[in-house]
């Protein structure tokens, strides 16, 4: 957490253009999403599997009466599927008109950055990762990839098309 503080004080980003991001870990890698699309963060609860759904869809859980689909972000990005424990967290994110839960290992940081810090996705990344990663941030020798949430659910893909 100390990183972000030193980070924001050192760069003193222009408040008008500054954006806040929530950083989280999947395995050894760090990712982040725009804080404006995050509704809440909650602990992992077992999900009800949906038949005939893609492997990255963990199932659905009850979010105060609404049915919330849970996307295993690790599997979605092409890594090994997560084996969720009580320490895993669900980032509840708003994507368009839908609310989706993203299963990640842990939330690590809140960053304040400006758009000019965002570098294009390196060409080495897999096709899968490239379609979800909007760009990468280099912060304190860490590489944090920003996730574009629009393509996380198969339905949103269809909507975009």
């Amino acid at each position: 957490m100390t990183h972000s503080e030193t980070n924001s004080s050192r760069r003193a980003p222009d408040p008008a253009r500054a954006r806040e991001l929530i950083a989280f870990r999947i395995g050894a890698q760090e990712f982040c999403v725009d804080i404006m699309s995050v509704r809440e963060i909650r602990g992992w609860t077992p999900a009800t599997a949906l038949p005939q759904s893609p492997g990255f869809l963990r199932g659905v859980v009850n979010l105060r009466g609404a049915v919330l689909p849970i996307v295993d972000l690790s599997a979605r990005l092409g890594f090994a599927p997560a084996e969720p424990t009580a320490r895993h967290v669900i980032i509840v994110a708003q994507i368009g008109r839908q609310v989706v839960g993203l299963l990640v290992d842990a939330v690590s940081d809140i960053l304040t950055v400006t758009d000019d810090l965002l570098q294009p996705t390196p060409d080495v990344a897999s096709e899968m990762a490239k379609s979800f990663v909007r760009g990468v941030l280099a912060i304190d020798k860490r590489m944090i990839s920003q996730i574009a949430l629009d393509h996380v659910l198969p339905l949103s893909e269809r909507d975009a098309a």
Binding site: T48, L50, S53, V60, Q98, V100, L153
Partner: peptide
């Protein structure tokens, strides 16, 4: 409860509901 609201139609499933244990049932 609608599945389509946050996800999409699932073949063979009409909708979802929430049971007494707080879990979602299809």
């Amino acid at each position: 409860k609608s599945l389509e609201a946050n996800y999409q139609h699932v073949p063979g499933i009409a909708a979802a509901t929430i049971l007494g244990d707080g879990r979602v049932a299809l």
